[in-house]
Nucleic acid binder design. Sequence first.
DNA 1: GTCTATAAGACGATAGAC
DNA 2: GTCTATCGTCTTATAGAC
Lengths: 201, 201
Amino acid sequence: MATMTTQLDAVPHRNAGREKVVAAAIDLFAERGVSGTSLQMIADRLGVTKAAVYYHFKAKRDIVLAVVRPVIAELDAVIESAERERSQAVRTETLLAGLVDLMVSSRRLYAILEGDLAVGEILASDPGVSTLGERIVEVLLGPDPDPGQIVAAHIFLAGLKGIGQGITEGIADDDLRTHVLDCAHKLLRRRRRPLTRTTLP
Amino acid sequence: MATMTTQLDAVPHRNAGREKVVAAAIDLFAERGVSGTSLQMIADRLGVTKAAVYYHFKAKRDIVLAVVRPVIAELDAVIESAERERSQAVRTETLLAGLVDLMVSSRRLYAILEGDLAVGEILASDPGVSTLGERIVEVLLGPDPDPGQIVAAHIFLAGLKGIGQGITEGIADDDLRTHVLDCAHKLLRRRRRPLTRTTLP
DNA sequence: GTCTATAAGACGATAGAC
DNA sequence: GTCTATCGTCTTATAGAC
């Protein structure tokens, strides 16, 4: 998971200007939201003009996609690896660990991803992305979940997003991961069997 | 709680135009976010011109405040009533019940309240409002909470916000309230004593 | 209370010089 | 790759007639 990087940083020094734009955009998107960030602000932060930014990206939409696509790709990989598991319990556990890992390792990007309705609109026009949320819930809960589980899942997923938004900045990555996973288990633990009777007679 | 209404609807028929603007604004804010909603859209939805809207509110900021202030007031009342309790357990329980109640009874407003960074910016210039979040966490967790509790609280609060955003629309108010409160207890339940030994010897 | 008309500026985006 | 200069559109907001 930590070694997955997208094509972008495979070539380290080419496209330096382009990546500077992306970096500035990430800062501003996290601070002021996507709708609240203008190309002028991005240009100002880089000490260049708007036109210079437009050399690297032909539209604002493309900047948003460049910022968000890597996380989407990782998210997709996490979901897929969970979907491949055969046991429902392992599927759930794999997905939870992957989601928490992803969120902790890129808190700000995860927050940008769901922090502005404009982002959802842009992503909605991208194929396959729109089904991501549904796949997560499906893998997380399995077939025919009860309403209580659905509510718990949505609270956890929304909470995961909220954690990224600078609320718990004082906590180290490892601690955060542990605590968040702990919350996930408290919320989503399946009904326990009367007693563990897993071994066959 | 359900009978608390703010000054606005105390006078039912005066200011009908003003309230129509607020109603249209709520719809649009919930659908497209505050930043994504222009005065033109509000005017169009009402079948009037922008200037007509400006007759009722002298700035967009004031529309946002008119939409959001009632929830803020209720939120403040909930926190205050919890703060008045003497036992920490009752304080927590009162706050949780109040928050969940408020969120369920006005899902869309609650979502608008925290769904757009622009709202926070507008509210930040209002006195007293900015301390609301801190007061909630303080009442919820009591003095010197451990990191695990802090994370759990933030996940729950962020999750509560997320629930308002149309994710669980198929669930009735009463069921939603029950399930969400259940989640709160799972997440925030204090360490159990070895066994219930509440009665003195 | 609602209208037309318009100001003043920010926005995303483009053309063309260097 | 970055610049200046500009286009057309949208925005918030105001003035004044009806």
